[in-house]
């Protein structure tokens, strides 16, 4: 093997990594820049972060995002876990049909789901607000929860559940004492993923949010449309940091005791 070929590949890959991270890093860096107007560095400051916490609208958006995130991911996790447990027992044919329906929301353009939900809510005369956001967020994050938990269940195989039944555990006893404890890392990972998706969602929220239910990404969008400002940089940085932390923690849970630790997404 020629080494120059390998070096080129290595160099190219690092370049791609730089391409992925440089813009985000610059954004984060500029959230600490003292100057408001231009791109020249004029000293380190925390003041943009401080001003965020003094801003009532930002705090309101943050509270909205967090409460919507928690409620929608609890719902998505419960529904998704229950469904994954059931689908495992379906015959191949039913499983294919049901999986098709469940994974469809992942491959449909997000904009379509957003406007379709807007149409539904308005036709059903449901006022847009926190609850419509929660319903929408559950809908798009549940499939992701199911991908993670189904992966975990497939990893586990059926032998352990059979062993439990063989030792006298009823189906519910098996679920409680064997299945649930074993897929718990997957459930936690699914919960964190759906919380991240909810916290991050812009497109679908854009269509179904009401005037008093602005979330952080929606608030950021409003600011971005007005132009670059250090406050947006600071707010975006907070969103980035919390997303990255959540994803890493979720990933650690998902890989915990899992046989292959393969990336599913």
């Amino acid at each position: 093997m020629k080494t120059w070929r390998r070096h080129t590949l290595t160099g190219y890959s690092w370049l791609m990594l730089v391409f992925l991270y440089l813009p985000i890093s610059i954004l984060m860096l500029y959230s600490f820049n003292d100057s408001r107007i231009n791109a020249t560095w004029s000293g380190f400051t925390w003041k943009w972060y401080v001003s965020l916490f003094d801003n009532r609208q930002v705090m309101q958006a943050l509270m909205n995002s967090l409460s919507i995130g928690v409620i929608s991911s609890v719902l998505a996790t419960v529904l998704g876990t229950a469904a994954s447990l059931a689908i495992k027992h379906y015959s191949l044919r039913w499983r294919t049909i049901v999986n098709g329906l469940i994974y469809l929301p992942i491959v449909i353009p997000e904009i379509m789901m957003g406007l379709a939900l807007l149409v539904l809510f308005s036709q059903a005369h449901i006022e847009l607000g926190k609850w419509t956001l929660i319903m929408a967020h559950v809908t798009f994050s549940m499939p992701y929860v199911m991908v993670i938990i189904s992966g975990r269940l497939a990893d586990m195989g059926k032998e352990l559940e059979e062993a439990a039944q063989d030792l006298g555990a009823t189906p519910w006893g098996t679920l409680r004492h064997v299945t649930l404890p074993l897929i718990m890392p997957g459930i936690i990972a699914g919960f964190l993923m759906s919380f991240t998706l909810s916290l991050d969602d812009f497109i679908i929220s854009f269509f179904v949010a009401g005037p008093n239910s602005t979330t952080l990404p929606l608030y950021i969008y409003g600011l971005v449309k007005r132009g670059v400002s250090p406050e947006v940089n600071a707010l975006s940085t907070l969103l980035i940091v919390s997303t990255v932390l959540l994803v890493i923690i979720a990933e650690l849970f998902r890989r915990k005791d899992s046989k292959n630790g393969q990336i599913h997404f």
């Binding site: 990594l17 950021i220 971005v224 990336i263």
Partner: peptide, 20 residues
């Protein structure tokens, strides 16, 4: 993990980073 992380970051924020 490094490739996956940007995928989870809000794309509004990622597009905005390029504006800067």
């Amino acid at each position: 993990l490094l490739v996956m992380i940007p995928f989870w970051i809000n794309f509004l924020v990622r597009s905005y980073a390029w504006v800067i």
